[in-house]
Nucleic acid binder design. Structure first.
Length: 423
RNA sequence: GGAGAGGUGCGUCGAACGGUAAGACACAGGUCUCGAAAACCUGAACCCAUUUUAUGGGCUUGUGGGUUCGAAUCCCACCCUCUCCGCCA
């Protein structure tokens, strides 16, 4: 949510931002409704003021005078009713449009239409060379009997997968590694609930567009989160945080649920794009003047994790058209996947400035004693399924075995997942 | 799922026969002081307007409706918390 005052004063900047983000919202209509709303509000408040004064009088008056005032008040009441209704209707229309205005991109975000206009900032690590044709994660995983999509299809349908055996150990090794690395940086680990009520969920800004991506349980009126971010933010809904506690960092581990509605036919092989996966997610509430720094810090942490795993990757700056509604700036990390011969997204970090905080009403008291909205920053530590894919494909050997990255060996207790052939 | 209790100002506690939200503690600033404590004073959501930093008005007792000239108080629905019972990983 943007500040209506900002829209009033800078309608052209807002329109430009919407245009850059490829989002169509009628800003002029918003301003018109805002004006109308304030006009009605003025009238209503005048009546309320009169009523308040009269109420005080009524107590003192007696007999005929009292009767007359009561009669007059009844009439004002009727008028007020009509106006109040009008005010509510106007406000409803106003709010509905306001909710559709996306956060504005920073000036340094590359302008573009879609992911093809994203800008690669740098490539890190050496792309491995194989003296055999590298296999993809599903082939490797099935041969090692650590990934099972066939049985998952039987129990749950397409786009599901079971991790088994060593893949499970790998998952927990990754979780432990992320925890150990990031707790040192003042992240508080959290295992949140994955079911969430509508209002807090709405506050994160993913419901107004892209609602078809979300699982919803009508019987209980609950949504399934698509990432821990969506519930770590609302954790502090309607709270006033202490300035000295910022930045307040959380590290959420949760299952994530996505309908993948718009991706029919895309990435159907294996567990690359599934309806359910586990993820370790970073989230921070910080002061407005610190969010750019915090965002870069998140990117640094993501790179630190990837470097430690020694998986080649590249850093991509996301263009305006590919930013989500809540984000003002976003970086992705794409890992090299030898099985696909491509870089594919494994991490994403966004600075959502005060967009989510305003919807969720999360503020902090500054030194001057005044209240300000905090800024929120989120970022992936590990999307576990995809990191497992990256490890399997980058660390595969000719006989189908997979080496374990050094950083994970102490958590796994082994240095290799051996294929049956090598035994 | 059944029965009961409750939700009051950024925090903690806590009052208000249907008459327009006391008070205490905490917090911030100030006076005092060499400094601190104590004491005293002031302030504190949000919205609208303007002679734009101050003043006026509105709103605010979990949320939304209703009754009423007037609702924290009465009625209805919903949300949340707690206690007991049942079920249960």
């Amino acid at each position: 949510m943007l500040d209506i005052k900002f829209i009033r004063e800078n309608p052209d900047i807002v329109k430009e931002g919407c245009r850059k983000k490829q989002v169509k919202v009628d800003i002029d209509k918003i301003l018109e409704l805002d004006k109308k709303k304030r006009e009605i509000l003025k009238e209503v408040e005048k009546m309320r003021s009169e009523k308040n004064k009269a109420s005080k009088e009524i107590v003192k008056l007696k007999g005929k005078e009292k009767k007359e005032l009561l009669k007059k008040m009844r009439e004002i009441d009727k008028e007020e009713d009509v106006l109040e209704k009008k005010l509510k209707e106007t406000d409803k229309k106003f709010q509905a449009l306001m909710a559709k205005v996306p956060n504005l991109p920073f000036d340094d975000v590359p302008v573009g239409k879609d992911e093809r206009d994203n800008v690669v900032l740098r490539e890190v690590g050496k792309i491995p060379k194989f003296d055999f044709k590298p296999k993809d994660h599903l082939e490797i995983g099935e041969a090692l009997d650590i990934i099972d999509v066939k049985r998952a299809a039987k129990t749950s349908g397409t786009r599901f997968g079971f991790l088994k055996g060593k893949a499970v150990l790998l998952e927990f090794a990754l979780v432990n590694f992320a925890l150990e690395t990031l707790i040192k940086e003042n992240f508080v680990p959290v295992i949140p609930s994955v079911l969430i009520k509508e209002k807090p969920f709405w506050g994160m800004g993913y419901l107004d567009r892209g609602a078809e991506e979300v699982y919803f349980i009508p019987k209980d009126n609950l949504y399934l989160v698509g990432t821990a971010e969506q519930i770590l933010g609302p954790m502090h809904m309607d709270e006033i945080l202490k300035g000295k506690d910022l930045p307040k960092r959380y590290l959420g581990f949760s299952s994530c649920f996505r309908r993948e509605a718009g991706s029919y036919g895309k990435d159907t092989r294996g567990i690359f794009r599934v309806h359910q996966f586990d993820k370790v997610e970073m989230f921070s509430f910080c002061k407005p003047e610190e969010s750019i720094k915090e965002h870069l810090f998140f990117l640094k942490m993501e790179e630190r994790l990837m470097k430690a795993l020694e998986i080649p990757y590249r850093v991509v700056k996301i263009c305006t058209g590919d930013l989500g509604d809540p984000a003002a700036a976003k970086f992705d990390i794409e890992a090299w996947l030898p099985g696909q011969g491509k870089f594919r997204e494994t991490h994403s970090t966004s600075n959502c400035t005060d967009f989510q905080a305003r919807r969720l009403n999360i503020r902090y008291r500054a030194k001057d004693g005044k209240l300000h909205f905090v800024h929120t920053v989120n970022g992936t530590a590990f999307a576990i399924g995809r990191i497992i894919i990256a490890i399997l494909e980058n660390y595969q050997e000719k006989d189908g075995s997979v080496r374990i990255p050094k950083a994970l060996q102490k958590y796994m207790g082994i240095s290799k997942i051996k294929s049956q052939k090598s035994k």
